Amino acid sequence: MSFYTSLSGLKAAQTDMSVISNNISNAGSIGFKRSKAQFGDIFASSPTQSTKMIAGQGTRLNGITQQFTQGSYESSEKTLDMAIVGEGMFVVRGEPPREQVAYTRNGSFTKRPDNQVVDSTGAKLQLLPVDANGNVTDNTLAGAFDFVIPAASPSDPTAELVNVSIGLDGLVTATFTDGSDTILGKIAMATFPAMEGLRPVGDAHWQSTGESGPPTIDAATNGPMGAIRSGALERSNVDITEELVMLIGAQRNFQANAKAIEGASQISQTIINMR
């Protein structure tokens, strides 16, 4: 039994090191959120047995949870680089025919040749419709639409685009050569009842699940959505010093369990060689 008990410890330490290694490797990834492995003990006995006479049977992985704490920020000279100060996430939509909706903290957006604003995976950033005063008129996923930067003023095709500005509340305004301004919408953001239940799909993107609950869609500065900082990017929330200390601890656990297996093997060999 001691073999299997120590073997479960070896597997747990290996999983712990894998999680920590993944955190360290993504320390420079924009919008990445660190993960933490959580373990629980294994204990089993029949109803008629006294638990005072039974040892545990090892450990098992309860789950790998993500830590959605705020990451540090770095300045950027691009207007389409955005960082969120709060709990919200950007809403992006994939290409047809699936047009799968995902949520991300990676605010590194660029403009494609067709003037659509996309993230690093090519998913299109979503906007919410607003009225003339900049108030959101539809805060649902069905009402959200693709962020497309106009090449010219809607009222004057000869007036070319000069600038695009993004406010703290996510209001996107386009300015043209004739001095006119056009409000394009507000950047769609989402929060969830249980952020830890989101399903990671890579590239700092997540999808909603039954464990996360349905998304609440709204604009920035509303509730826990937070504010949007244009010209900045949120780095990962990985603390290298903390991760290295945890990695050393996981290595020590692995070595200790390996020693326990070696000791059990020696005891078994001694018993077998007894005459």
Score class of each variant (00 low, 15 high):
71 G>L: 07
47 P>D: 07
50 S>D: 01
52 K>D: 15
65 T>P: 07
58 G>Q: 00
60 R>N: 01
62 N>M: 05
78 K>R: 13
64 I>W: 09
81 D>P: 15
54 I>W: 02
46 S>I: 10
74 E>S: 15
80 L>T: 05
81 D>C: 12
48 T>D: 09
66 Q>F: 06
57 Q>T: 13
81 D>R: 10
64 I>Q: 00
81 D>Y: 14
84 I>V: 12
56 G>R: 11
55 A>I: 01
78 K>M: 09
54 I>Q: 05
72 S>V: 11
83 A>W: 09
68 F>E: 02
52 K>S: 14
63 G>D: 07
73 Y>D: 11
81 D>A: 15
46 S>F: 13
62 N>T: 13
51 T>F: 04
62 N>F: 07
56 G>E: 04
75 S>H: 08
53 M>A: 12
49 Q>N: 09
67 Q>V: 14
46 S>L: 15
70 Q>G: 02
57 Q>M: 14
65 T>K: 03
62 N>Y: 00
75 S>V: 08
82 M>L: 14
59 T>P: 00
63 G>L: 05
60 R>F: 14
61 L>W: 11
52 K>R: 12
76 S>E: 02
69 T>N: 09
61 L>A: 06
49 Q>E: 14
79 T>Q: 08
82 M>E: 03
80 L>Q: 03
74 E>A: 13
56 G>C: 10
67 Q>T: 14
45 S>I: 06
50 S>P: 04
45 S>W: 11
49 Q>L: 10
58 G>N: 08
62 N>S: 11
81 D>Q: 12
71 G>C: 11
60 R>G: 03
70 Q>F: 08
74 E>F: 14
67 Q>K: 05
56 G>F: 09
74 E>P: 01
58 G>T: 05
76 S>Q: 11
55 A>Q: 00
50 S>K: 05
74 E>R: 15
62 N>V: 11
67 Q>M: 15
59 T>S: 07
70 Q>S: 13
82 M>Y: 00
73 Y>V: 03
58 G>E: 04
53 M>I: 07
79 T>R: 01
45 S>R: 09
69 T>F: 05
61 L>T: 00
69 T>V: 07
46 S>T: 15
54 I>M: 04
79 T>C: 05
71 G>S: 06
